[in-house]
Write a protein that binds this DNA or RNA. Sequence first.
DNA 1: TTGAAAGCGCTAACAC
DNA 2: GTGTTAGCGCTTTCAA
Lengths: 358, 358
Amino acid sequence: MSPQHRGYSSVQDRPATLADVAAASGVATSTASRALSNPGRVNAVTRERIERAARELNYIPNSQARALTSGRTRAIAVLVSDVTNPFYFGIIRGTQQQLKAAGYTQILVDTEESDELEDGMLHKLRPSFDGAILAASRLTDRRLTALADEVPLVAINRQTRGVANVFIDTPNGVEQAVGHLVSLGHREIVYASGPETSWSNERRWRALVRAAEGYGVKALRVGPFAPRQYAGAAAADAVLHAGSTACIAFNDLLAIGMLARFRERGVDVPGDVSLVGCDDIFGADFCNPPLTTLTAPIEQAGRTAVAMLLARLDDGAAPITRQAATLPTHLTVRASTGPARAASTAEPTPSTPPKGRG
Amino acid sequence: MSPQHRGYSSVQDRPATLADVAAASGVATSTASRALSNPGRVNAVTRERIERAARELNYIPNSQARALTSGRTRAIAVLVSDVTNPFYFGIIRGTQQQLKAAGYTQILVDTEESDELEDGMLHKLRPSFDGAILAASRLTDRRLTALADEVPLVAINRQTRGVANVFIDTPNGVEQAVGHLVSLGHREIVYASGPETSWSNERRWRALVRAAEGYGVKALRVGPFAPRQYAGAAAADAVLHAGSTACIAFNDLLAIGMLARFRERGVDVPGDVSLVGCDDIFGADFCNPPLTTLTAPIEQAGRTAVAMLLARLDDGAAPITRQAATLPTHLTVRASTGPARAASTAEPTPSTPPKGRG
DNA sequence: TTGAAAGCGCTAACAC
DNA sequence: GTGTTAGCGCTTTCAA
């Protein structure tokens, strides 16, 4: 580990500091500092000399030290409730893109669906980031509002008073989905519910109820289920037990899990049961059958959230910018939805003679 | 934004510092520091007093300041070449888990398959993390070795002299896959190649060649293709053009993309072509047909990499611990592989009369 | 066992 | 324009 191996200047065996750069270019550190971060406020010639020295010494600003004085870390925390869920891949990707473009660093935190972990991490890491993006926060409204007062925050899919947010309008999509199912002749729609602590879950269910009322069809609900593939088996069984011909699932992950269980039980999709997912995650287009779902602009949501957050940070304390954005979803019809059968008990044995129904 | 809204002590409108805690408990900051981070070296009674004060003041250590003096940030950078690729979900998840358990923070960086970005980010962020995990590095051996001398590093799926690594033994899996295909009667196997800069890609291809030789069957290669779903169309076409009945793809993402194209062209899988993927990513089990693939312990690789890295960091400069780990893969046979046809030109039109072949 | 004091690398007043 | 001087919050000698 000789100096030259470590990529440092050949003179000293440690990374160059601003002081080194200043010394090398015969100016005070403050001047070097200005030259490097406030180029306008320094003589062009001196600046160039300093910049050259910095380059030659392979100088890298120490962001910790910078953060200590400036109070800004140029890092943004992104909190997701489950890194495993493909929905968040989109968020991670969208935020990552936009952050990198702005020269910010992404601190990724998995809150494991726990409000305590979410709150705790936010506090523990507070001095390490300039702002946070909460994708699907599990915090209570009260807590979230309080937090937004302490930390620059943007929530995704969570509308709470006083909290900037990006909202993917899945509820509107759910209405479209109900319309689609009704047009296929379905008269009763089950909602396979997600976690009770999920704000989106409640919104989707309410949208379904409202739409069902509007169309004069019946809405019912089974669950709650974990928003995971493995929970699909239980959800599918519950739907079958309910005896409806159509189901809208809280999200695609659950829906994909249901698909497997339906096949296992000999239930044809969409012949016996039509199934609609939410989000259009990776996999929704190539599962079997491909899933009719509500396509959500997930990455876009991530990008927008970052844009909102950074705009706020850069404006200082003045939140001139829009504090809420709504992104539309649309229904993508694939092979998992089809005409309702005359018989709608959705029995696994197709040999059962059709029985008329409501 | 009154003090009480911000969750601070009611006395001052800013987060409590160590000095505040010290003052509140009537000791010097140095004592408070010791009590909080070196509990052994302080009187039990004083320590408790200090701890209580810290709790009451809602004291959170400032990691930037701590990093400045100690040189340790308790953050680890995880570099992936494409956050979009489900393979890395496993890495992200595995590392996230293990890091959180150890009280470390994860800095996630997407290098976009670019060696320059990889190198650049590693340098730029150098003072911000204690070590880095490179999942599928695109750097040259030379560069990587040099880097490992400057930065505590663990590479995943990249074996280079002087660089600690976790290696998922997919090449061995490829041999199993070849055996499987041979046992199904296939006499020629195409490899749908991934990026040329990928070390894994070369290793897999070489394993295929070796195994093919061992079995006395023919091996050929098409590509390179981007390791993405969209590249599957081109890959499938190339395989069809090559006329083989069996294909091993660089990874599942590519394989899943190929599946769609085969269907589009009326080619039956596995009737006309058998297809094997690599990694067993999310989706490999529910695509249509489900993919025969090499199941890789991806999350485990992430966890192991973190364990190796942290062990090294904690031991100080002494790398007593193992600097390399090999994780086995196994062949998971699903529906995308089946018996070879007598005719092996794999023409999209099944009506073509079978022609004998090599 | 504890305190005083010196910095880590940088920015930001404030002078000149 | 540029230099001087204080710190940011913490750890860590070194004394006591």
